[in-house]
């Protein structure tokens, strides 16, 4: 019989690590298998429906029988001929990128203030800053719409950018702040004694060193902005509509595989862009 040590070092899973304990071996194993089963079921539930969308988008049949009898790009051709959809895609990209930059910039400045300075009501102000996570988006949507209409500002892409920046700000703040906690402030002090003013110090020292977290934050904000619907539905007009809003209104009228194609495009954008950015980040900043 192998020793307990062997199991601990060799153990591939918890189960293996426990194989040596008589009596409970079988029970542990069953439990672990149960955990595995639940995990598999959850993954199937999470991923299979998405897979169906992707496969269906290549199904030329209007009825979308599954599995498809043949594959074609018919719906993509229709999709890319539809001006409204292209417009929505373009709007979504613009808003997402702009909100990412907005929340990245504001999140950085804000996180720096909270980490570096001591001021009154700091704890309460953190909650203020995080409140966009707590207020249900339906209320954010209604409140902003009423607010802008009362002060007489019409719907525009700018409106979307400003509001999506707000929705992404708590994420950006938290992500950047957690890296700033690890940042060695004496580096900034060193730069200052060497003659760098505050702006230069930020540019030369702080920014390069916290940029990994800023990039991560911007990616997350882009993803949030790109997929946001509940609040955004109140904020768009025909020319500033975004992809989720278009999908929603298509679903209301008729279900066509064109939706699958659009959803697949959205899926690709929302996964490929972050992965590409994070990949480039890893490549460009090895540490």
């Amino acid at each position: 019989m192998a020793t307990e040590q062997d199991h601990v070092t060799k153990g591939e899973t918890d189960v293996d690590a426990e194989r040596g304990y008589f009596g409970i071996t079988f029970a542990s194993r069953t439990k672990w298998n149960l955990i595995r089963l639940v995990t598999v079921v959850v993954y199937v539930l999470m991923l299979l429906p998405l897979l169906v969308i992707v496969v269906n988008s290549f199904n030329p049949s209007r009825l979308g029988n599954f599995p498809p009898e043949s594959l074609s790009l018919r719906w993509y051709t229709e999709l890319f001929a539809d001006e409204l959809m292209l417009r929505a895609l373009w709007n979504s990209l613009q808003v997402g990128v702009a909100a990412a930059f907005g929340a990245g910039l504001i999140g950085t400045l804000t996180a720096m203030g909270f980490v570096r300075k001591n001021f009154r009501m700091q704890d309460a102000l953190v909650i203020v800053l995080l409140s966009p996570l707590l207020v249900p988006p339906i209320i954010v949507g209604v409140a902003a719409t009423i607010f802008f209409s009362q002060i007489g500002i019409g719907r525009s892409l700018m409106w979307l950018i400003v509001m999506h920046t707000l929705l992404g700000l708590p994420y950006a703040f938290l992500i950047i702040r957690s890296q700033l906690y690890l940042f060695d402030e004496t580096l900034e002090e060193a730069a200052q004694t060497l003659g760098a003013d505050r702006v230069t110090t930020f540019r030369e020292v702080t920014l390069p060193l916290i940029s990994p977290s800023i990039i991560t934050a911007m990616v997350i904000v882009f993803v949030i902005s790109f997929g946001e619907f509940t609040a955004t539905q109140f904020w768009v007009k025909r020319t500033t509509t975004t992809v989720p809003v278009v999908i929603f209104s298509m679903l209301r009228t008729s279900i066509s595989p064109k939706i699958d194609a659009l959803a697949t495009v959205m899926l690709v954008v929302t996964i490929a862009i972050p992965l590409a950015v994070l990949g480039i980040r890893r490549y460009a900043m090895p540490n």
């Binding site: 429906p49 998405l50 997929g227 989720p244 999908i247 279900i255 959803a263 959205m266 899926l267 996964i271």
Partner: peptide, 16 residues
């Protein structure tokens, strides 16, 4: 999965 917009995750169930 966390990145996939809610609307798509919701819509997927309609087709299924």
């Amino acid at each position: 999965q966390y990145w996939v917009p809610f609307i798509i995750r919701t819509y997927a169930w309609i087709i299924v």
